[in-house]
Computed example of a mutant assay.
Amino acid sequence: MDFVSKHIVEPGQSVKLKSLETEPQGPFESKAEARAFTDQMVGKLCELQYRLHVEGRQSLLVILQAPDAAGKDGVIRKVLGRMNTQGVRTYPFKVPTEIERAHDFLWRVHQCTPGAGQISIFNRSHYEDVLVVRVEDLVPKSVWSKRYEMINQFEALLAERGTRILKFYLHISSGEQLERFKERLDVPAKHWKLNLSDYRAREKGAKYREAYEDAFRKCSTKDAPWFVIPADKKWYRDAAVSAIVCETLKEMDPQLPKVDIDLAEVRRAYEHEKAELQRELKGQGKS
Rank of each mutant, 00 (worst) to 15 (best):
S5V: 10
K6S: 09
V9L: 04
P11W: 02
Q13D: 13
S14G: 07
V15S: 07
L17H: 01
L17C: 02
K18D: 14
K18E: 06
G26P: 11
P27T: 05
P27W: 03
E29G: 15
E33F: 00
A34M: 01
T38C: 04
D39N: 07
V42D: 01
K44W: 10
L45A: 02
E47R: 06
R51M: 05
L52C: 00
L52F: 01
E55Q: 15
G56C: 02
S59M: 02
L60P: 03
V62I: 15
I63R: 00
A66L: 09
A69D: 07
A69K: 05
G71C: 04
V75H: 03
K78C: 13
K78Y: 05
K78V: 06
N84F: 02
N84W: 00
T85Q: 14
T90Q: 06
Y91S: 12
K94L: 14
V95E: 15
H103Q: 14
W107D: 09
R108G: 12
Q111S: 14
Q111C: 11
P114E: 12
A116L: 11
A116G: 12
G117Q: 11
I119V: 15
I119H: 09
I119T: 12
S120W: 05
F122D: 14
N123F: 06
H126P: 07
E128S: 03
V130P: 10
R134M: 05
R134H: 08
L138Y: 14
V139E: 06
K141H: 08
K141Q: 13
W144C: 05
R147K: 06
Y148D: 09
E149S: 13
N152F: 10
Q153R: 14
A159V: 00
A159G: 10
E160T: 13
T163W: 05
L166Y: 00
L170D: 01
I172L: 15
S173A: 08
Q177N: 12
F181Y: 09
R184H: 13
R184G: 14
L185A: 13
D186Q: 09
V187A: 15
V187S: 15
P188V: 12
A189R: 08
K190R: 15
K193I: 07
N195C: 11
L196D: 15
L196V: 13
S197H: 06
E203A: 12
Y208N: 04
R209A: 12
D214Q: 13
A215G: 10
K218V: 01
K222R: 13
P225R: 05
I229M: 07
I229F: 08
P230R: 00
A231V: 09
D232C: 10
D232L: 06
R237Q: 15
D238M: 01
A239G: 11
V241Q: 06
A243D: 08
V245R: 08
V245T: 10
P257T: 01
I261R: 10
E265H: 02
R267T: 00
R268G: 02
E271A: 00
H272Q: 05
E273M: 00
Q278F: 08
G285K: 03
G285Y: 09
